[in-house]
């Protein structure tokens, strides 16, 4: 009966459903356009290309759920990417360089968290300023793209462990951390802090601490994503992360994570980014000139966001109408 309760609870409250449906619909459509789309090799290479963004989206989702937003995640990846390449070039073994990289991005995430959650800077603008700083650091570390990675890294990334593609483990890392976090009382506290910080504070929730965790987690996910990305492309590029922030945030919103905070989960984000990634594949594989591709991707991102907001609006209407029936607020002192 625990299973039945679990299903009832989760299916009723799922916000990821649209994204899941979108993704599987598109996958089916793709199958008709492109035979071999459901083959293992296609799916594996699809995951390979998208793992980094999926990790970023998980991080972005958690920050948004906690009531903030972090648009410096992309530039964080740029910094981490060039840093990793430089470390490897300087002779550091990848078994040390990789953890150092993840540590660095987590530190960057926590720095963002301090600025926003503790010092109460505006989430949007502070991370926007931070993204400039990180982009600048990336350019300083490696002004032009280049470098290479250890063969083992690329081999691991493209291979599999126990029959499961290695990329899945990259995605699992942040996933497991978040699910573990949700198993502690902090889980609901983070959701409360994200939805209504004042009421959460009244309930003795440590709002800044929960937000700080969210930003740190986003940094951690960015680190994992960077390792994935670096192993995939095999080199460093200071501008590589530039577009990734927007992709991650849009994927999160498409995945049902509400921008007002406190709603949604990273599963939605994962499917949101799978959906966006699939669209990119379809666009790339069609014969559109390369000059048109960024435009088309941008338009699709826009349409996806519009669609997600329309869906949220309709759900918001329903909730508001039932809230009206439920009763108003108390007055007086």
């Amino acid at each position: 009966m625990a299973l039945a309760r679990f299903l009832a609870k989760n299916v009723k409250r799922t916000t990821a459903l649209p994204a899941v449906l979108l993704f599987f619909t598109l996958l089916t459509v793709n199958f008709f356009i492109m035979p071999g789309a459901l083959s293992r090799s296609f799916l594996v290479s699809f995951l390979n290309t998208n793992t980094a963004v999926i990790c970023l989206t998980m991080g972005a989702s958690v920050v948004i759920i906690a009531g903030g937003i972090d648009i410096s995640l992309g530039p964080m990846v740029s910094v981490a990417n060039v840093m990793l390449i430089k470390l490897l070039a300087a002779g550091t073994h990848y078994s040390a360089a990789i953890p150092l990289t993840v540590l660095a991005t987590t530190a960057m995430g926590l720095l963002n968290g301090v600025l926003v959650a503790v010092l109460r800077g505006s989430s949007l603008l502070t991370t926007f300023a931070a993204s400039t700083v990180y982009s600048g650091i990336a350019l300083l570390v490696m002004p032009v793209p280049g470098g290479s990675v250890a063969r083992e890294m690329t081999a691991f990334y493209n291979g599999s462990l126990l029959g499961i593609p290695a990329t899945v483990f990259f995605i699992l890392a942040p996933y497991v951390v978040w699910k573990a976090f949700k198993r502690t009382p902090h889980g609901i506290r983070l959701y409360a802090a994200g939805n209504n910080p004042a009421k959460a504070y009244s309930s003795a929730v440590n709002v800044p601490a929960e937000k700080l965790f969210a930003f740190g987690f986003a940094g951690f996910s960015a680190g994992i994503g960077t390792v994935a990305l670096t192993s995939s492309i095999g080199s460093g590029d200071p501008l590589i992360g530039a577009q990734m922030s927007m992709m991650a945030i849009s994927a999160a919103v498409i995945g049902g994570v509400s921008l007002s905070g406190g709603y949604g989960d990273i599963t939605g984000g994962i499917f949101g980014s799978l959906f966006l990634g699939l669209i990119t594949v379809i666009v790339l594989s069609s014969n559109i000139s390369s000059f048109l591709q960024q435009f088309v991707s941008g338009v699709i991102l826009l349409l996806g966001m519009i669609g997600a907001m329309l869906f949220t609006m309709r759900r918001g209407e329903k909730a508001r109408r039932s809230a009206d029936r439920g009763g108003g607020t108390a007055h007086g002192e």
């Binding site: 959701y191 409360a192 406190g262």
Partner: peptide, 15 residues
Amino acid sequence: SIVPNLTVEENLLLS
């Protein structure tokens, strides 16, 4: 001090 995005049980035990 009830938070609208949680269930009754979750709100009850929030603190």
